[in-house]
């Protein structure tokens, strides 16, 4: 399945780009992300808890950044193995453009699942994947703009996902950067 969307973020293109490459930001924006570690300049390992319909699983896997055009675009992709629940793969091509009032972030995402997730959750997968993608960019927008209430709301929406992130992560990313 494929999903598209865009967000107007009240921050400069450079600020948005920096945030897109910050593992702490990514960790706080990926719904259900419990752990994320940088293993190289473009690679991370991650643990993400997700629930699709009747299937809840902890996915362990890798996140990779590729097709990097600094300040403009990259592709973020990941594959997670959820044991008996199956696997999930997804990616998004993220493009930035200057626009009045900030930066326009556009994304084209796609996702694929296998195993029990596909068997039991098929009817729900499309809606679920759209929600995950939208959640990610909602959180990202909130974090970059420092809209704490929005970020908390997004976390509350994804509370099924696992332990709530530490309090300081809910602060705006920019605020943390300068505090």
């Amino acid at each position: 399945m494929e999903m598209q969307g865009e967000r107007l973020i009240e921050a400069s293109r450079n600020e948005v780009w920096t945030a897109l490459n910050d593992p702490e930001v990514l960790k706080s924006c990926i719904p259900g992300c419990e752990e994320m570690e940088k293993t190289s300049a473009t690679e991370f390992t991650a643990t993400v808890v997700q629930k699709v319909g009747p299937v809840k699983a902890r996915f362990k896997g890798a996140v990779e950044l590729s097709d990097i055009v600094p300040g403009e675009s990259y592709t973020i992709s990941g594959e997670g193995k959820g044991g008996a629940a199956g696997f999930a793969r997804g990616g998004a091509k993220v493009t930035l453009a200057d626009q009045d009032g900030g930066t326009l972030l556009s994304y084209a995402a796609e996702a694929r699942v296998g195993g029990k997730l596909a068997q039991l959750g098929n009817r729900l997968i499309n809606g679920f994947a759209k929600k995950v993608a939208a959640d990610f960019f909602d959180r990202f927008q909130a974090v970059v703009q420092g809209d704490t209430p929005e970020a908390e709301k997004a976390d509350a929406d994804a509370a099924e996902g696992g332990d709530a992130p530490p309090e300081e992560q809910k602060k705006g990313w920019l605020k943390r950067m300068i505090s």
Partner: peptide
Amino acid sequence: YDENGQLVSASLMD
């Protein structure tokens, strides 16, 4: 089956 061979009607819900 979907195009990847995932059996998407694999429960009595579907």
